[in-house]
Nucleic acid binder design. Structure first.
Length: 960
RNA sequence: GCGAGGGUAGCCAAGCCUGGUCAAAGGCGACAGACUCAAGAUCUGUUCCUGCAGAGGUUCGCCGGUUCAAAUCCGGCCCUUCGCACCA
């Protein structure tokens, strides 16, 4: 038997792939199709990704052993700008990128190729397949490989979008999205694939409120348009030079950084000059709604980079405003400098507008007081603002000062007032990012308006309702997600599905200027794997993948003969493809990381429901959690994670696979820890040695109790695993196979088990149980014990009912219980035993027990009934002193027992005979003389009269 | 903000849906013993507190409730992790 994991892996992978057992073709078996959500091509993957991937191989191997014809295809998702930006960075000789590539094993001479995005994709496709999936021994059908940027896949996506259009699910409307001013649309996310900083930024919607000031319109950007009723003044930063911008017949005033951003959102802005902040201070402007004239006052907290750089002042509810107002009112010198009317300034009072439970009428005044804030720029203001905003917005309602909005909850009033003001041309919208975002190219990212953006209408009520109903029938794991997915489907709304710019992906079939974006082209794709072998072997060409072709093979619409004629394909081939599709589809299980719960899975589900007939809707979803590093999520972009081939070499593939399956429930994150890996490595070592040792046992000696026990236990283990695997519970499979069974083996040997025939049977079952999770070492052991063919193709074991021996299991439990008790006595008394005497129950107690069990069965077991029954028995009545007490204990004890325990008590078990047979074993274990007696044996040795405490299934013990 | 998950002994982690077999699986780690010249590996035992007889006591984030009985069911609170759309 080989022992080096790398050699074992190479040996068996070669045999599997040579025998093509990974290739799935239609036959007359029942089928099972499962995938993992294909990874994006963004660079090297790390050991964390292999967790979910290996689950799919584990499960598909298990299903194969259960007799299913299993299809496990793989592919990659290269849509987007990941490969482009990688290529750009290589071309720019970016040192971080180069060293990252080399560190992960990219050959130096390959670097030149990687300046081409298409070659980047092909390079990583090869890395993923060879260095990750094949390296891990996956029985994936490589012939079915698909990549989203290959032309035939694009044909499929275009067909999908035509179907969405037919179903009325493609709609067009304006959209505001983050974009680099240079490269076009970018994704803003924590992993910062497209950008070099600002991954946590969010898009903020400001309401621009217009304040007439002579012929100028001052624009205040606010998050709280509902507070206009509380306006007391306007803030201008005296140190800022504002710009004047013509928009229609208005002249807008804003800061320059604001104009730079707004240009991307409004078409006809024309800069016509500038005006100093100081020039505006002291003027009055007209507040919308109220029509009040308010004064422009100086405030340095107006940041030209935030919003418009102009701020409307609501001192009742905005702490910044209140602090600034007080400062202005107290600084008479400044008022004089700006020529302000001192009395008018001093007369400004906050106007209460919102009632919030637990707060007075002026929350801002209150909190500034409470936190002791006196100056603008005090860092505590950030916190103050947060508190007031949160409380007011969610718990407050508009007060009597607010006209027709009085009494409305603040969050409702906000939207109504915003809409009303926009309609009345008193306001507009402006989008900005909550923090600075810079593209990978170095240019800033802004929010850009797109006028004719296409969306997939996931809010469509019919598709949503059908999807929700179908989700109820699906096998969705974990259960929490099964429950939650309905909420997600409800919340799912229109989703922008195409984008412009320099992107890899499929052209939008209705307008070639668009490219279908990354999430929208990866929803229906599992069905593509049913036809991909024909694509990959050249018998189906991209130009033959017409609408009619897809309509026929996927939807069963049209006639094969026509499709054949129009595409030039053989009619027989067209029919064969359709039969393949009908055989394999629907998808049985789609496994993906938890990040897919609110993005991919709902879209996956709804596209199937919207496009395919009901019998092709997916059957299952499995969500897995991550492997994280101590610092947090192991991230592709941040590095630091163990490269996959290195880990495979270091620990062995099977140890890694076992680690993933066993370390925790799939529905919890785990922390990557090298020390723990070592434990799994030695676990596998030990198991291999155990198998080697046990397989050498001599053939057929007489069958003993311990042999019956071993076989019985094995059957129980198999049943538990098979039951668990109905819910794809790999952890139970792992725990039983790699931990419980070895522990049983240990006990078997310790008890002197040595039956070669029994062990041959047990090992044969055990090795097959190891085949799904640690397939390489399982093959090696399978070969060693003389198993038939490849274990990967063997049947998963089933429990043989004839092997079940409750009595044998009871006996060993009895023995272990006894040993525990003896150990406890030895521990407490600190005796080194010279002699241990054991007394089994007296027959009257055994009789009482069976009476009690009888009463329990009929539901009559109570202390008085049992006592009465016992006293009417002559044998028991002789022990009239002890009996009532025993009856009470028995009755109290038995009602608490589970069904399983009770049924064990009902099994006949000769305690004395068993004790006599295990006395030699105990004697060896305890290293002293051991004798067993019946408690009723008049000739027994019993120096302390312990025998009287013996009970059924609980012998009395004497130690000296 | 919206939504979801988690808090179990020194650590990791099952159990919770379906209450009683739960002082709570398993694994690490630690301690002791066996084996060994020794170390490692392996095996055995111990590992909440108390206890010179197999027992008792106090535990499963906190508070309260339901129940004969709660880690498990219900309510509230505290802490924590995660997802939230052009990133797959």
């Amino acid at each position: 038997m080989l022992t080096n994991p790398t050699e074992i892996e190479a040996k068996w992978q070669e045999r599997w792939y040579a025998a093509k057992i990974n290739e799935a073709d239609r036959d007359d078996r029942k089928k099972f199709m499962m995938i993992f959500a294909y990874p994006g091509v963004t660079g090297y993957l790390h050991v964390g990704h292999m967790r979910g991937f290996s689950y799919v191989d584990d499960m598909s191997r298990y299903m194969r052993m259960q007799g299913y014809n299993v299809m496990f295809p793989v592919g990659t998702h290269a849509t987007g700008n990941g490969p482009i930006s990688l290529a750009k960075r290589v071309a720019a000789k970016d040192e971080n990128m180069i060293s990252y590539l080399l560190r992960n094993g990219c050959p130096e001479k390959k670097l030149e190729d990687l300046t081409d995005p298409v070659k980047v994709v092909e390079f990583f496709n090869d890395v993923y397949v060879r260095q990750y999936w094949r390296r891990f021994g996956f029985l994936a059908d490589w012939r079915r490989f698909a990549c989203t940027v290959h032309e035939p896949y694009g044909k499929f996506i275009q067909w999908q979008f035509r179907k969405l259009m037919d179903a009325g699910l493609l709609i067009q409307k304006p959209y505001f999205a983050p974009a680099c001013i240079n490269c076009g649309p970018v994704a803003i996310d924590a992993s910062e694939t497209d950008i070099s900083c600002g991954g946590n930024a969010e898009t903020t919607e400001y309401t621009l409120i217009k304040f007439k000031c002579g012929d100028l319109t001052l624009l205040a950007a606010t998050l709280r348009p509902e507070t206009v009723f509380g306006l007391t003044n306007f803030w201008i930063n005296p140190e800022v030079e504002y710009v004047k911008v013509v928009n229609g017949d208005e002249i807008w005033v804003m800061s320059r950084p604001c104009l730079d951003k707004m240009k991307y959102q409004k078409d006809k802005l024309k800069e016509v000059g500038s005006i100093a902040g100081t020039e505006l201070i002291g003027r009055t402007c007209i507040a919308p709604f109220t029509g009040n004239e308010i004064l422009c006052l100086p405030a340095t907290f107006c940041d030209p980079n935030v919003g418009t750089g102009l701020v409307m002042s609501v001192p009742s509810d905005a702490p910044d405003d209140w602090v600034a107002l007080r400062m202005v009112q107290e600084d008479e010198e400044q008022c004089r400098r700006y020529g302000l009317d001192l009395d008018a300034v001093k007369a400004i009072r906050p106007i209460a507008i919102i009632e919030t439970k637990g707060w007075g009428p002026m929350p801002a005044v209150e909190i500034v007081e409470r936190m002791g804030i006196t100056r603008s720029g005090d860092p505590k203001l950030v916190e103050a603002k947060k508190i007031v905003y949160k409380e007011g917005f969610h718990a407050g309602k508009m007060n009597a000062n607010c006209g027709k909005y009085s009494n409305l909850p603040v969050d409702k009033a906000k939207d109504m007032m915003k809409d009303d003001m926009i309609r009345a041309n008193e306001a507009d919208l402006f989008f900005d990012l909550s923090e600075k975002v810079v593209c990978r190219c170095g240019e800033p990212v802004v929010i850009k308006k797109v006028d004719d953006q296409w969306f997939i209408d996931y809010a469509n009520p019919e598709v949503t309702a059908k999807s929700k109903a179908h989700a109820k029938r699906m096998n969705i794991m974990p259960n929490e997600y099964f429950v939650n997915v309905h909420g997600v489907l409800d919340w799912f709304r229109e989703r922008a599905c195409v984008r412009q710019g320099n992107w890899l992906g499929t052209r939008f079939p209705f307008d070639e200027k668009w490219i279908i974006e990354a999430i929208s082209d990866s929803t229906l794709y599992p069905i593509f794997y049913t036809i991909s072998p024909y694509v990959n072997d050249g018998s189906l060409k991209a130009e033959q993948m017409t609408t009619e072709f897809f309509d026929y093979v996927f939807l069963g619409q049209g006639v094969a003969e026509h499709v054949a004629k129009r595409t030039g394909l053989d009619e027989e081939l067209v029919q064969r493809i359709k039969q393949d599709v009908d055989y394999w589809y629907p998808l049985d299980l789609n496994l993906g990381g938890k990040e897919h719960m609110t993005v991919h899975f709902p879209a996956f589900l709804m596209n199937h429901v919207a496009i395919l007939p009901e019998e092709k809707w997916p059957q299952g979803i499995f969500v897995n959690w991550y492997v994280i590093s101590k610092a947090g999520k192991i991230s592709k972009s941040k590095g630091g994670a163990q490269p996959i081939p290195g880990a495979a070499e270091k620990y062995g593939v099977d140890a890694l696979r076992l680690y993933y399956a066993h370390i925790a429930s799939p529905f919890a994150d785990v922390e990557w820890d090298e020390d723990i890996l070592e434990n799994y490595v030695s676990k596998i070592d030990r198991i291999m040695r155990t198998v080697e040792e046990l397989s050498a046992l001599a053939e057929s000696e007489a069958m003993e109790g311990i042999d019956l026990w071993m076989l019985s236990r094995m059957g129980g283990h198999v049943s538990n695993v098979v039951e668990g695997m109905k819910g794809y519970d790999l952890r139970t499979l792992a725990n039983v196979t790699y931990f419980d069974i070895p522990n049983d083996m240990k006990w078997y040997l310790r008890r002197g088990g040595s039956n070669g025939a029994v062990m041959a049977k047990v090992l044969n079952m055990w090795v097959r149980m190891m085949a799904p999770i640690t397939p390489h070492v399982a093959e090696e052991m399978w070969e060693h014990i003389g198993g038939n063919g490849l274990v990967a193709q063997a049947k998963f074991p089933t429990a043989d009912p004839a092997d079940r021996s409750l009595e044998a299991e009871i006996a060993e439990d009895y023995l272990r219980g006894l040993m525990d008790d003896v150990n406890e006595i030895l521990k407490v008394t600190k005796i080194t035993p010279k002699r241990v005497l054991v007394y089994t129950t007296s027959s009257w107690k055994a009789k009482a027990m069976s009476m009690a069990l009888g009463l329990l069965r009929t539901g009559e077991l109570k202390t008085p009934t049992l006592t009465k029954a016992m006293m009417s028995d002559a044998d028991i009545k002789k022990h009239g002193k002890e009996a009532p007490d025993f009856a009470r204990k028995l009755a109290e004890d038995l009602v608490k027992r589970s069904k399983d325990e009770v049924s064990r008590l009902e099994v006949q078990f000769d305690e004395l005979a068993f004790m006599s047979s295990v006395a030699p074993f105990l004697s060896k274990e305890l290293n002293c003389e051991v004798q067993a007696f019946s408690a009723e044996d008049a000739a027994r040795t019993d120096p302390q009269n312990k025998a009287r405490t013996a009970q059924p299934r609980r012998p009395a013990i004497f130690v000296e």
